[in-house]
Design a protein around this nucleic acid. Structure first.
Lengths: 205, 205
DNA sequence: GTATTTATTTAGTGAACAATACAAAAATGT
DNA sequence: ACATTTTTGTATTGTTCACTAAATAAATAC
């Protein structure tokens, strides 16, 4: 069952992980339909058939890019949700989003928002999948806030789902603003404001 | 100088304004690059050359769609900015956005956000134009809040630009959430929360 | 009636799209 | 040495892209 055995055929000339990273950055900047397979391949420094051999097709390459995105650039939720208080969770998610969308070594904005927010009818499923992923993250937050209510960290009459929806709304807004060109220090003000709001909404003070 | 004279050549068989409305709805739902000229023409009930004769080309058709959008569906800012207090302005803009992005007779979401948030490199100018339009609206808000500070409606040390940026961030977030499938009554909660935040940020109470 | 103007229809243009067929090349297994 | 496996490069598939040339049709101008 181990996969340690030497590969048999002709060895791949390019670094698959690095090629995937290049694809991710192109999808990130231009969206799924804003970049062509020919463009992807040449930017990755490979021929089109090598891309298909290594990644399947354009859609699967996009999925793998999203996966890499979640493991590297957008690894926000897992560590944030593990924090002690609902407030810290909200803070970590919003600050993590600002870091993500203004990272100078990556495209501006958020792949989950701009990767396939709108598409041609042919790619509707892909757009739906991205919506589901955003809703999944919102669900994680809602569950975490629910737990905070049970723990007594949030008041009993707090609305966990609505709080999560509020944070996700600000998150998405921050992503659009970053793509619009709004700078990091301005987005950090938005985070401060939103956290002030969070405390008030959650009736923490 | 009057343009009341009868048109000379063969009369157009289709209603130009209605055709433009159909184009607007397609761009709204699928984005500039998510719908083809052939698709636009057939949905408008006309042949492709008629589209070019009436509207120039795809880009100009998009511009005219944006213009129609501003005059009809998205006529939010002018009436909102004329209201008496900064709080009422913020409230009208956020509620107007929710109405806009959840109107059951139009596509979900906001054309200014999803029309060309990301594009292929060839359409970068178009994406930049949409960013500029969003920033223009934000500028209107900032100016209005500045005036509110001068009027004593907002405290002297309020940050007009940051307040405008906050409202625009929530606005964009609401647009993304509507496209994600979040329902009107949930978005109205977000508006309530954001207005609570607005009062606190602006130090109105 | 004839000329002029504009819209419509049909049938295309070359370029770009996602995806592949095929054969040569480069590794391993026996 | 030779068969097997996988990647590579070249060339190409059929389709869709934005856009248009050309002929016909329907109105007004004089």
């Amino acid at each position: 069952m181990s996969e340690i055995s030497k590969t048999k055929g002709r060895p791949r000339k390019f670094d698959k992980e690095n090629a995937l990273k290049i694809a991710l950055h192109l999808f990130w900047r231009h969206g799924f339909e804003g970049v062509s397979v020919a463009n992807l391949a040449s930017s990755m420094g490979i021929n089109v058939p090598s891309l298909y051999a290594a990644f399947g097709n354009k859609e699967q390459l996009f999925f793998k890019s999203v996966e890499l995105y979640g493991k590297t650039n957008a690894n926000i939720y897992a560590p944030a949700l593990a924090l002690d208080t609902a407030y810290e969770v909200a803070q970590a998610i919003l600050l993590g989003e600002v870091d993500l969308v203004t990272n100078p070594e990556a495209p501006d904005g958020c792949l989950m928002v701009q990767g396939a927010l709108v598409t041609s009818p042919e790619s509707q499923e892909l757009s739906d999948m991205m919506s589901k992923l955003r809703l999944t993250a919102e669900g994680w937050m809602a569950d975490r806030f629910e737990k905070a209510i049970e723990d007594g960290d949030l008041p009993k009459n707090a609305d966990a789902k609505a709080l999560a929806c509020f944070i996700m709304t600000v998150n998405s807004g921050i992503a659009v603003q970053a793509k619009t060109g709004v700078k990091r220090h301005e987005l950090l003000k938005i985070v401060d404001y939103s956290l002030l709001a969070f405390r008030k909404i959650a009736m923490l003070d």
